[in-house]
Design a protein around this nucleic acid. Structure first.
Length: 715
DNA sequence: CCACCTGCTGTTTTT
DNA sequence: CAGCAGGTGG
């Protein structure tokens, strides 16, 4: 197979592809053909005689890794050898498993997902008798987040608390103790959390020369994508594996760093030339993805960053529609408008060429309901995963017990499904099983006949060591009545998921490997991408992907950026980069939705929302503006001119002078204090002007509120 | 002593 | 709507 490098690549891409050896850093702007460059380089190396088995492709996210391997397979004309690439975590698992005899963990090890880790922390809390009766003791999810962040950033728990949760500082000691106990529980029960995979691999490579040499011999060429998302230990792993030879190609974009929250460190990519002396550096700046109007907007988003990026993307795709900014009454009507728009677009585009993006998984709930009603098929990425669904976890826990009889969280979960058994009994039984206290166990078996049944089954399965699919089938028989009684309203739907799991298990011969893949690689959903199906995705999961049409919803304060980030300049910068990532996914059409009110669940009513501060930065010519009419249509909205009285009209957000450049005296003249109306709140009285653009309004039915002037009309 | 029920709270992103 | 704490009844 001959690849025409001259035809397919621009000079910068070709330079990266032809790079002879030694370290190479590719700074690749969004849509600049980054994946293409990696894939062509891989093909080039193979054409020069490199063994495909000797090339390792690593990234942080599973999505990006799958996409990279898929495209590499396409250009090479065949699938890459298994083990050619994956996420850092899955690579770490495979390597650790291969060297498990050297790890001093004879019983094998099980990977815990977030829920398991939280359960184990709860166990630690229980045993240490911490936080009893203290309502403000941090929740286990919060603690897990803090513990993991401390590890990822490689600082003390106290430092993390100091930096972002000072209100929890009084608990620093308790949390420290919990964290230590948690680590001990993991070691005692053959459990690894996600972070352990990376640190254990580092330990192995650093201490065990034979293992290190084996890896270095095996992987001659290392390619790391999304390098800006690596954390400290990942960067050290790359260094350890590359060795003296330093055949590392790191690809990334500092402007797309969106994982600082889990310890990703942009300085990794900035420091690459120092970490790997003599590194060649190639910059890819021509964008092949988006039209110029879309790039104008994304360049503007970056221009507002506090840390300026030395980046200005350009394209030859001069023509195209401006991004559309759509004002809608509420998030509920936004969902309806999005469905309408998807229907309209689907006349010109295939459904899978359209994506709806959002900041957090729950923001798609209303939309999902409407899509189901409209009969539009969709696939959702991000948010709750297949394997996190309760019934799937149940069954996986039985399997885990077959693979690892000391898996404490798995015991807890499996045993509490037995009638009459709760957390305490479960803990006691697990303890008795693990330590082999036969007498104690016999008592438990007597008291709970169903327990005896489960123990016999697990024992038999462990001895038989069948292929995973057969073991799973036996366990499903056992689980069936549990499923029906635990989920009386929707067990048939859940059963389908279990069948999918069975099908997946059929592809494996090794139980441990099956379990690891289930927690480290998203099992491809039944709709595997190429089908004609709409994509819903969090912005994080959309990274590295592209669509002709992108609809971005909920561009309001508190949702994008999320509320918590408003307090910290650093977090706000990450939100900005996140918005940049979202907008740069679009090739032809970009639609941005700004609801003016959000449904507040616990109050059962709508509250007004303010547009995202990022939206307020955009100059009027960057976007076309639209608003929802009261009859549910969408009409062009001329900025500012729609205001009834020019003297009262505040400059529209887009024309507002840069904050800080305008002296207070130059601020727009305040509206008269007097009566006004608001779409949601109805009639009210303006009682004060709050520069630069807000009013305090006393509404007849809602009381005092602070409202952006733009949303008030005067009588 | 412990499982189960009831009522309150507060919602990010990934491996 | 889940996750969690505190009360209750077995």
């Amino acid at each position: 197979m001959a690849i025409d490098y001259e035809r397919d690549l621009n000079p910068a891409q070709a330079e990266a592809v032809r790079h002879a050896g030694g370290p190479l850093l590719v700074i690749a702007g969004a849509g600049s053909g980054k994946t293409r460059t990696i894939v062509y380089r891989l093909a080039h190396l193979v054409s020069l005689g490199a063994d495909p088995d000797s090339i390792l492709l690593l990234t942080f996210t599973r999505k990006a890794s799958q996409e990279m391997l898929r495209r590499a397979g396409l250009i090479l004309g065949h699938d890459l050898p298994a083990g050619s690439g994956g996420t850092f975590h899955s690579f770490a698992y495979r390597t650790l498993k291969r060297h498990s005899s050297r790890l001093g963990r004879p019983g094998g090890f099980t990977i815990m997902d977030r829920a398991d880790a939280a359960d184990l922390l709860a166990e630690a809390k229980e045993r240490l008798k911490l936080g009893k009766g203290d309502k403000s003791f941090p929740k286990r999810a919060t603690i897990l987040e803090l513990v993991s962040k401390a590890r990822n950033k490689e600082v003390s728990l106290a430092t993390v608390l100091q930096a972002e949760s000072f209100h929890l500082l009084p608990y620093a000691q308790d949390l420290e103790r919990m964290s230590e106990y948690y680590a001990r529980l993991k070691a005692d029960h053959g459990l690894y959390d996600y972070d352990d995979l990376l640190f254990e691999l580092e330990k192995l490579l650093a201490r065990d020369e034979a293992a290190r040499e084996e890896i270095r011999r095996r992987y001659v060429h290392l390619m790391v994508d999304e390098y800006q998302d690596t954390n400290l230990v990942q960067a050290r792993l790359v260094k350890l594996m590359a060795g003296e030879r330093g055949n590392v190609m790191a690809v990334g974009d500092d402007a797309q760093s969106i994982y600082a929250f889990r310890g990703a460190n942009v300085t990794n990519i900035l420091r690459f030339p120092q970490d790997f002396p003599g590194a060649a550096i190639v910059r890819l700046e021509q964008n092949y993805r988006s039209t110029q109007p879309i790039l104008d907007l994304t360049n503007a988003i970056l221009a507002g960053a506090a840390v300026k990026f030395d980046k200005h993307l350009f394209t030859t795709r001069e023509n195209g529609e401006k991004p559309a900014l759509v004002l809608c009454h509420s998030d509920a009507s936004q969902a309806r408008l999005v469905v309408d728009k998807v229907r309209e677009l689907s006349r010109k585009y295939l459904l899978h060429e359209i994506a709806v993006l959002f900041r957090a998984g729950y923001q798609a709930f209303q939309l999902e309901v409407l899509l189901n009603k409209a009969g539009i098929r969709y696939q959702k990425f991000g948010g709750i995963k297949f394997t996190e669904a309760a019934h799937i976890k149940d069954v996986l826990c039985y399997l885990r017990l077959v693979a690892n009889a000391t898996d404490l969280p798995a015991w807890q979960r499996s045993l509490t499904h037995i009638p009459g058994v709760g957390p305490k009994t479960a803990s006691g039984v697990a303890q008795a099983v693990i330590t082999g206290e036969a007498a104690k166990l016999a008592k438990y078996r007597e008291r709970f006949p169903a327990l005896a049944e489960l123990l016999v089954l697990l024992d038999a399965l462990r001895r038989r060591a069948d292929p995973p699919a057969r073991t799973l089938a036996a366990l499903l028989d056992y689980y069936q009545p549990v499923l029906v009684s635990a989920y009386p309203d929707d067990w048939p739907r859940r059963q389908q998921g279990l069948e999918e799991l069975s099908a997946l298990a059929g592809q494996y011969r090794d139980l441990e490997l099956f379990l690891a893949d289930v927690s480290l690689e998203t099992p491809e959903d039944e709709a595997a991408g190429q089908e004609d199906i709409l994509v819903l995705s969090t912005v994080h999961s959309a990274k590295g992907l592209e669509w002709p049409c992108v609809l971005l919803i909920d561009l309001v304060e508190e949702r994008f950026p999320v509320r918590r980030s408003l307090a910290s300049a650093e977090d706000m910068e990450e939100e900005r980069r996140l918005l940049y990532v979202a907008a740069t996914r679009a090739k032809d059409r970009l639609l941005l939705y700004v609801p003016e009110a959000l449904f507040i669940r616990h109050q059962q009513r709508h509250e007004p929302a303010r547009p995202s501060p990022f939206v307020l930065e955009w100059a009027p010519e960057l976007v076309s503006r639209w608003r929802e009419t009261y009859s549910g249509g969408v009409v062009p909205a001329e900025p500012a001119r729609t205001e009834p009285a020019p003297t009262l009209a505040l400059s529209s957000p887009a024309t507002r002078p840069e904050a800080g450049t305008a002296a207070p005296a130059e601020a727009p003249a305040p509206k008269k204090l007097g009566r006004c109306t608001h779409k949601i709140f109805g009639e009210g009285k303006i009682v004060a002007f709050i520069p630069p653009d807000k009013y305090r309004v006393n509404f007849q039915n809602f009381g005092l509120k602070v409202i952006v002037g733009q949303y008030l009309s005067m009588e």
